[in-house]
Structures are given as C-alpha cells and as structure tokens.
Computed example of a mutant assay.
Amino acid sequence: MQVKRYDEGNTVGRQTISQFHGDLDLQGADTGVFITTSSFTNSAEEAARTFNIKLIDGDTLTKLMIDYKVGVQVMQNYELLEIDDEFFEID
C-alpha cells in the first residue's frame, strides 16, 4: 500500500504507479493499493489495471471515510417529518 497526500490538481501519473509496481515486485507482491488525496491521470489508471493495482482517489477516499465514519464527526442531525394522513381521517 502507498498513500500520497497531494494538493488538488497535482495528479498521480503513470511513472509513480510504475515505480510502485516495481516496489511491489521487489517484495514479491502481486497486487497493491495506491491512495491519493488528489486524482490519477488516465495513463496512471491504465497502468494500474495492467499491474493489478487498486486506485483510490480523493473523492473515493472521502466517501469511504464518511461511509465508515473514519476521521469525521457528526456536526448536525436533521429530522424529516411527513403528515400522517390517517391521523386526520374522519370516520
């Protein structure tokens, strides 16, 4: 696994994914996960498919953090109400 904290617009490219694949190969691993707070170039995504590397970009990371409540906190809850039509029925 490798994680990069990049600013928005500073994308992870093919070369970085290829280097990660080389590191995986040296460790005898046949798959890996690469996470960034930014995004990946198209060529990086193609390389990742070739090398069996799972990519998680900033948007996906944010969604996973919210889904699994990791590194987030509830700021406010909302209550949604609807009219109970049966309550107002006249027999």
Rank of each mutant, 00 (worst) to 15 (best):
E82K: 13
L26Y: 13
T62D: 06
Q15S: 10
F40L: 08
G9N: 10
F40W: 03
T60Y: 09
E46S: 15
N10F: 07
V70P: 00
T60Q: 12
D7M: 03
Q2W: 00
G58A: 04
T37M: 08
Q2F: 04
K63L: 07
N77R: 14
I17D: 03
K63F: 05
D30R: 11
E79A: 15
S18R: 13
F87L: 07
F88R: 03
S39A: 15
D91Q: 11
D23E: 12
M65E: 07
M65W: 08
V33Y: 13
I17G: 02
Q76C: 00
D30H: 10
Q15M: 01
N77M: 05
V12E: 08
N10C: 01
E82V: 10
N52A: 12
A47W: 01
D67C: 06
Y68H: 15
G28F: 06
E8I: 06
F34H: 11
Q76V: 08
G13E: 07
V3S: 10
I90E: 14
D85E: 14
F40D: 06
E82I: 11
A44K: 01
T11F: 08
D7N: 14
I66Y: 11
S38Y: 12
D59Q: 07
M1W: 01
Q2S: 15
N77Q: 07
D67F: 04
V33Q: 01
E86Q: 13
N10I: 04
T11S: 06
D57N: 15
T62C: 12
A44Q: 06
G32N: 04
Q27V: 01
F51E: 11
K63W: 02
Q76Y: 11
Q73N: 06
G58Y: 05
T31S: 12
N42L: 13
N52F: 10
I53N: 06
D23M: 03
F34K: 14
D59P: 02
I35Q: 06
I83W: 13
L55H: 05
E45Y: 03
G58R: 04
G28N: 10
K63Y: 01
Q15I: 08
M1L: 08
L81Q: 13
T11A: 12
S18L: 10
Q27F: 06
R14S: 10
Q15A: 11
M1E: 12
Q27R: 12
G13A: 03
F87Y: 13
R14N: 05
D23Q: 15
T50C: 05
Y6I: 01
D85Y: 09
D84N: 14
S18V: 15
K54Q: 12
E46D: 12
T11C: 01
T50V: 09
F88P: 00
N10T: 02
V70M: 05
I90R: 14
V3R: 09
I56K: 03
R5F: 15
D30V: 06
